[in-house]
Nucleic acid binder design. Structure first.
Lengths: 245, 245
DNA sequence: AAGTGGTCTAGACCACCGA
DNA sequence: CGGTGGTCTAGACCACTTT
């Protein structure tokens, strides 16, 4: 029975919470089919329409997807790129291209104050830094530094990320039962730092897009802070505008 | 009766289309209340639940908003800034600040090829260029050049934009019955051009965020191409990430 | 044919708002 | 109090997919 909470929240909201928890616990893996709407309705003691409303909201939030005639499925975890992709600069109505990641390595660092603050950690807390290089058809496009609280993700290393297809978010999900959620992205134009210039094979100081991202678990606990430097000489970054029809 | 179309499309989709048309024609002004769900249901010969589904989708798309106990209202036209705002660089969980626009002027130009292409016009077609300066607490932040097809918006000038509170989109809505819809935004990091450097009071060549935007009418007809140069020395640009709960 | 999601209806009741 | 949106139910039928 799901009605225990005295209806402080609507039934369909309670159902969303319950299913999110189960998915977070790994009750169903990505691309695995959920029980049918009627089965869920019976199990939870509500009508099919109420289950449907809960599922519909979870679909629009990107947690589930539906296939008519087949069923409702758990969506893949968000990719490390986390945007729609890149597009040739100046051309609208052109197809979005998604870069591919190459894992450069993992290391342990102590959190600078600003970063500890953002992640809700003590000053100088231990972090794992994961460095990735993004390519678009062999051409180097961007470098990422992802910082994660070492305590929360004990044992995360290059081997484990590689096992997860080079994706930090995939590793978080498969090994630490965390489905990452994007909290906020901040974009700036900055001169390319020297170190990143070497990695990208580009002169220091050219204008690059700096993308800073904070990621949390479904429960709202910060799990990652990420810094990306993205070249935009020929390709432009396309943000994910919600309303697209 | 709305059932005329032989149900090729679901009823609620037809209702969305019908209401969008009526709003585009100015049947209800922004912040004006629509008929109640029951009244619409009776008028259209469908059940209240079907009307409700249509309205709910239009609310999530940002066309309408609801107030419990009061009614359903037409949303304001999108603002010229068109993003959530700016945030102090590096600080997450900080309040978003929305810049204010100052109208610099209007002029007529001929469309460069790339721009004519994006707007679906003939090469060299006449355009109206509207130039705006954005300020955040008196500090110059960004300059915009909005380009609109002169033929489509005959008579648009500085006076008319000023009458619309300095907003191009407001002018489009009030004088040309166009509710602008964002098609795509492209972001790049580029060196600040000389002319814009003068307007912003900043040295030529510093890295700035270049934001290129294509805007269309509800019917999908392109109505504006806009180029923004945005300083990001202390403040960062925050894209509108759909899923935010 | 059986099982799934997708649409639509009719009716009930609740929560909130304003007069 | 009446009017509005918000939730929930039960049942029907349709469209699509798989067996």
């Amino acid at each position: 029975m799901i009605r225990s909470q005295l209806r402080r929240q609507p039934l369909y909201t309670q159902i969303k919470t319950l299913l999110s928890q189960r998915i977070g616990e790994g009750a169903w893996q990505p691309n695995e089919m959920l029980p049918s709407e009627w089965e869920l309705a019976e199990e939870l003691g509500v009508s099919q329409g109420t289950v449907r409303k809960a599922l519909t909201e979870m679909v629009t939030e990107g947690m589930l997807y539906r296939q008519q005639g087949k069923g409702t499925f758990v969506a893949d975890v968000m990719g490390d790129w986390a945007g729609p992709g890149m597009v040739p600069a100046g051309l609208f109505r052109s197809r979005l291209e998604l870069p591919a990641a190459e894992l450069l390595g993992c290391s342990r660092v102590n959190a600078p104050d600003e970063l500890a603050e953002a992640l809700g950690l003590k000053r100088g807390a231990a972090l794992v830094r994961v460095r990735q290089l993004w390519r678009l058809q062999a051409e180097a496009l961007a470098v990422d530094d992802a910082y994660l609280p070492a305590e929360r993700i004990e044992g995360l290393d290059a081997k484990l990320v590689r096992q997860s297809g080079g994706s930090v978010y995939n590793a978080l999900h498969r090994h630490y039962a965390v489905r990452p959620v994007l909290v906020q992205e901040q974009l700036r134009a900055v001169p390319l730092p020297r170190e990143e210039g070497v990695l990208l094979g580009v002169a220091e100081g050219v204008p690059v897009l700096s993308i800073t991202r904070l990621t949390a678990s479904l429960q709202g606990e910060p799990v990652e802070w990420r810094q990306r430097y993205c070249l935009t000489r020929t390709m432009a970054y396309v943000p994910d505008h919600g309303r697209v029809a």
